[in-house]
Design a protein around this nucleic acid. Structure first.
Lengths: 298, 298
DNA sequence: CCATGGCATGAAAGTTTTGAATGGCTTTGT
DNA sequence: ACAAAGCCATTCAAAACTTTCATGCCATGG
């Protein structure tokens, strides 16, 4: 493949119509440019200019090559330009993975802020129901950062944003409403709205039950904690959800667990040295985790 | 500006996600690629990859730069590819200037042949009424070859295709019809359909008249010999036109001049070493000048 | 804890690019 | 017609760059 320098010389030569002039415009000596053109012509196997007494005249082959050469030069220039810009936090593409329930709860304000403050940065959001899946996404280079609960195991760099509480949701009028907090073992006595295995909460709930030596009674399984809460509130049974999954005015009865159960909310970072990623995490951290309005009220 | 090699390394690095792997894919040593990347990062002022224990991970800046880099690489490759092709007579753009009257008469068969035999070559045709204008066009690099009568003075390379005859056109039933050839001085006695100064024929006709020591009687002037012939045939007077301007069945009376007047039909060639140009001229020459059907008949 | 894999670094070798000097050719001006 | 000037190619040596080799560092995994 031809070198960029040679293509640069070709374009200058085509534009000035003179070896000497082209060399001057590139601030190099005439023989240097002459050599570059000679090398290029050798590679093309055809002259790019026709030499005449005064100056040169571009051949059809030279014109055709120069057109593409211009594109190459522009793109090469653009490559370092865009690289610099993105390095300075302006422009580029940021691929964000997020736990499904946390998008609205945690991410949206920062996303909105970025859209207005850094409009040239393209934000790509993907939503997931498993922290481990997101970890894989980061590892395989398909996302730049992932927001969600702490995955079971991961090699990735983790930044802890805080903790969110896990709460019980029951139908309106349920006897749980009478109590400020529900002991976990009491849940075993109720029909339980469980999760499908692709949701990380599924295994998490089972582990919690095992730790309390109780067996749950799943009446149905759903993928989404948001749906689980709605189903429970609608009378299907009780369920356990992270507060991030609850709307501002949740239906049904929402109660703390006793003892309190929390889980960490973290960011997995593909490359902490990345300016865009670092800036986003910084903004996330500055914004902080929302306080759980429902529980404060209830 | 970054070198093409460095951009190539970046793309390979982004694609393999490993310095060693990228080096292998480019068939170079690992330190060489490492150096290229280091140089590029210095130019960008930001890392393009995040180094971790096993392999590397592309940063947002690196991804953005790599996207443009791919474009640059493709274009550079394309530049030599298209250059080679055009050098071999395939593809590219050929800008042909032609004397207005000669397009249909002389050029069309070759143009048609090229469209079918070399469909990848883009043909650009411009028509003119002055050979000197066309010479300027060639000199200024705005056309690759020009077909028409020999210009008065030109520095350009000239290839002679042949000669075309200049004939007299008069209205049907004109007394010229009785004679096989018309002496030039007889024309002075008739109302003359002349040319506007932007047509090379204008000066040419005046010179011819001066050489015969006659003064013409211009009744009107037109830019196009084709129009002049029609006007004369329609009874406006007589005129002088090159046979290339006459249709297959010309209206009115067409007669030779006495003595015979001819003018050379030539090709001005911007760069004789140009493969496309040379091929086109070769085809023009092979096709030859049409024999003048009207005169053969008349 | 050692072996392994992966990247960076430094110095030397190799290659390319550049620039100065020069020569040939053509045009231009006297 | 001749000298001067403009323009491009060539040669050669110096400079710059690229590549490689040797080596070191670090983290991982048996």
């Amino acid at each position: 493949m031809a070198t960029l320098r040679a293509l640069e010389c070709l374009v200058a030569l085509v534009e000035t119509g003179s070896v000497t002039g082209a060399a001057a415009s590139l601030q190099m000596s005439q023989p240097a440019l002459s050599h570059q053109i000679a090398a290029l012509e050798k590679e093309l196997g055809t002259p790019v200019v026709h030499r005449l007494a005064r100056g040169v005249r571009v051949t059809t082959a030279g014109r055709a090559a120069a057109e593409e050469a211009r594109i190459a030069l522009r793109a090469a220039d653009q490559a370092v330009r865009i690289g610099r810009r993105v390095g300075a936090g302006d422009g580029g593409r940021l691929r964000i993975a997020c736990a499904e329930t946390m998008t609205a709860w945690l991410l949206v304000p920062v996303l909105r802020q970025w859209r207005s403050r850094r409009p040239s940065v393209v934000l790509e959001l993907s939503e997931h129901t498993s922290a481990d899946d997101m970890s894989v996404l980061i590892s395989s280079g398909m996302a730049d950062l992932a927001v969600g609960p702490r995955p079971g195991v991961t090699d990735e760099h983790i930044e802890v944003l805080g903790e969110e509480e896990i709460v019980v949701v029951a139908p309106a009028g349920h006897h749980f409403a009478a109590r400020p907090a529900v002991p976990f073992r009491d849940i075993a006595a109720e029909p339980f709205v469980h999760y499908t295995p692709d949701n990380g909460l599924s295994a998490w709930v089972d582990q919690l039950a095992a730790r309390h030596h109780v067996v749950l009674d799943p009446v149905l399984r759903t993928r989404s904690p948001r749906t689980a809460a709605q189903l429970a509130a609608a009378g299907m049974g009780v369920t356990i959800v992270p507060v991030s999954a609850l709307p501002a005015r949740p239906p049904g009865v929402v109660r703390r667990l006793k003892p309190l159960v929390r889980r960490e909310v973290v960011v997995l970072v593909a490359s902490p040295s990345d300016s865009l990623v670092a800036a986003f995490v910084e903004d996330l951290r500055r914004r902080g985790l929302p306080t759980s309005a429902p529980l404060a009220a209830g």
